[in-house]
Simulated assay, not measured.
Amino acid sequence: MKLYTADGIPNPRIVDIAMYEKDLNLERVIVDFLEGENRASSFLVKNPAGQIPVLELDDGTIISEVTAIIEYFEEVCPDPFLVGTIAKERAEARMWARRVDLAVMEPMSMAFKYGIGKNYFEKRITVYPEAAESMKNKAQDGLVWLDNVLAGKQFLCGDRMTYGDIMLYCYTDYFKKTGQKVESGLVHLTHVLDSIAERPSVQKTA
């Protein structure tokens, strides 16, 4: 299998960490997104959305989207699990991943694309600079909310790390460099993020 990916940005890093957690041996093919390689016709054949990461199976099947790739990893290599072993666990993991996506990941991304990343992204998507600050504030509200719900918990799903935790870590770790940091007073959230940062799978992608 081949994993078309990139270093240093959140979505590819999420999948890389999941790959290392499961000790999967995949060929990593680096895509130069800054030079627009992911928008080239040769890549769009694989993923018409022009996004990375992309997983190419041995039979040529293409799987894109972070969650879909992680779900595939879970099916072919369930141990250690990042989704769950029974229906209740899987539903809980998907619930928290979606909450993280809506409360933190989407507004952080929009704040960046509409704000300091505008000059790069306006060539690729429609940007709304007037919305940048409100998206940044929405993401901060999401972090405060997560801090409250994480009180007394090791991870989003209690004592088991799931892919939602990886998503949360990768986005907060990346966007702190763009002025969207986790405030020091969010002690419960900081504790969870610090524990994730210590994992070998995460350190391999640092």
Rank of each mutant, 00 (worst) to 15 (best):
N119L: 11
M105T: 10
G84A: 04
E92S: 08
K153E: 00
P107F: 02
A131V: 03
C170P: 03
L146I: 03
K113G: 09
L143Q: 08
F81W: 12
T126H: 14
E75S: 05
Y128R: 11
M105F: 07
G164R: 03
Y120S: 05
S109F: 13
V104L: 04
V83Y: 04
F121I: 09
F155K: 00
T162I: 10
S109D: 09
L168G: 00
Y163G: 01
R98V: 07
A87S: 14
M110P: 01
R160D: 13
T162N: 10
K123I: 00
G142P: 04
A151Q: 13
M161N: 07
R160K: 15
K118Y: 10
D159V: 05
G117N: 02
A131Y: 08
N119W: 04
G164S: 02
G115T: 10
I116P: 09
L150Y: 07
P129E: 12
I86T: 13
F155D: 00
T126S: 15
E133Y: 03
K118L: 15
S109H: 11
F81E: 09
D101H: 14
L156S: 01
K88S: 15
E106W: 14
G84K: 08
R98H: 15
L82Y: 06
G158K: 00
E75V: 02
W96A: 03
E92T: 06
N137R: 15
A151Y: 05
L102Q: 14
A139M: 05
